[in-house]
Computed example of a mutant assay.
Amino acid sequence: MRVQLKASHFLAGLSGMGSILLWCILIIFNPYTDVMNWSPALNTFILLFLPGCLALIAMVYSYRLLLLIAFGWSILPSLYMAGTPGIFAWFGVTSIGYLFAYLLMKPSRPI
């Protein structure tokens, strides 16, 4: 069986993995802080990492609504991070990627 890669699935996967990777960089290799603070790590985990995981689940199961939820969940912290200098401004791009993947994914057929 041949697997067809759709643009929406590719974009959802790229955005989800990008968000997860950026979160790991933010927490582990953050050049702006010397110590590991658990409160910001937990907040950004909930607001930036989990929507990335949700986008990956939406990609695997072709479930559009999860992409819209991931976008709505991550848009405000992503816009905040997009206003910062450096690599973390890419969080805004990953959030917009969720929206574009949602718009590109075709709705499922009614049963």
Score class of each variant (00 low, 15 high):
Val3Thr: 11
Leu5Tyr: 09
Lys6Pro: 00
Lys6Gly: 10
Lys6Met: 08
Ala7Lys: 11
Ala7Arg: 12
Ala7Asn: 02
Ser8Pro: 02
His9Glu: 14
His9Ala: 15
Ala12Val: 11
Ala12Cys: 12
Ala12His: 06
Leu14Trp: 12
Leu14Asp: 04
Ser15Gly: 05
Gly16Leu: 11
Met17Leu: 15
Met17Arg: 00
Met17Pro: 01
Gly18Phe: 12
Gly18Arg: 00
Ile20Trp: 04
Leu21Met: 15
Leu21Val: 15
Leu21His: 03
Cys24Ala: 14
Ile27Trp: 13
Ile28Gln: 08
Phe29Ile: 01
Asn30Glu: 11
Asn30Tyr: 13
Asn30Ile: 07
Asn30Ser: 05
Pro31His: 08
Thr33Tyr: 14
Thr33His: 10
Asp34Ile: 09
Val35Gly: 02
Val35Met: 11
Met36Pro: 00
Met36Lys: 09
Asn37Lys: 13
Ser39Gly: 09
Ser39Cys: 09
Pro40Glu: 11
Ala41Tyr: 07
Asn43Gln: 12
Asn43Asp: 14
Thr44Pro: 01
Thr44Met: 12
Phe45Cys: 03
Ile46Leu: 13
Ile46Pro: 04
Leu47Val: 06
Phe49Pro: 01
Phe49Trp: 14
Phe49Leu: 14
Gly52Met: 04
Gly52Ile: 12
Cys53Asp: 04
Leu54Cys: 13
Ala55Ser: 11
Leu56Lys: 00
Ala58Thr: 10
Ala58His: 07
Ala58Val: 13
Met59Asn: 07
Met59Cys: 14
Val60His: 03
Tyr61Asp: 05
Tyr61Asn: 07
Tyr61Arg: 06
Ser62Tyr: 07
Ser62Thr: 12
Tyr63Lys: 11
Tyr63Phe: 14
Arg64Val: 08
Leu65Tyr: 09
Leu65Gln: 10
Leu65Cys: 08
Leu65Phe: 11
Leu66Gln: 01
Leu66Thr: 07
Leu67Trp: 07
Leu68Asn: 04
Ile69Ser: 03
Ile69Asn: 02
Ile69Arg: 00
Phe71Arg: 00
Gly72Leu: 15
Gly72Ile: 15
Trp73Glu: 01
Trp73Cys: 06
Trp73Gln: 03
Ser74Val: 03
Ile75Met: 13
Leu76Thr: 11
Leu76Glu: 06
Pro77Cys: 03
Pro77Asp: 03
Ser78Asp: 05
Ser78Val: 12
Leu79Cys: 10
Tyr80Pro: 01
Tyr80Arg: 00
Tyr80His: 09
Met81Glu: 15
Gly83Met: 10
Gly83Tyr: 01
Thr84Met: 14
Pro85Thr: 06
Pro85Ile: 10
Ile87Ser: 01
Ala89Ile: 10
Trp90Met: 12
Gly92Tyr: 08
Thr94Lys: 00
Ser95Thr: 02
Ser95Met: 10
Gly97Ala: 05
Leu99Tyr: 11
Leu99Thr: 05
Leu99Gly: 04
Phe100Tyr: 12
Tyr102Phe: 15
Leu104Cys: 10
Leu104Asp: 03
Leu104Tyr: 14
Met105Asn: 13
Lys106Asp: 06
Pro107Thr: 04
Pro107Ser: 04
Ser108Leu: 12
Arg109Phe: 02
Ile111Ser: 09
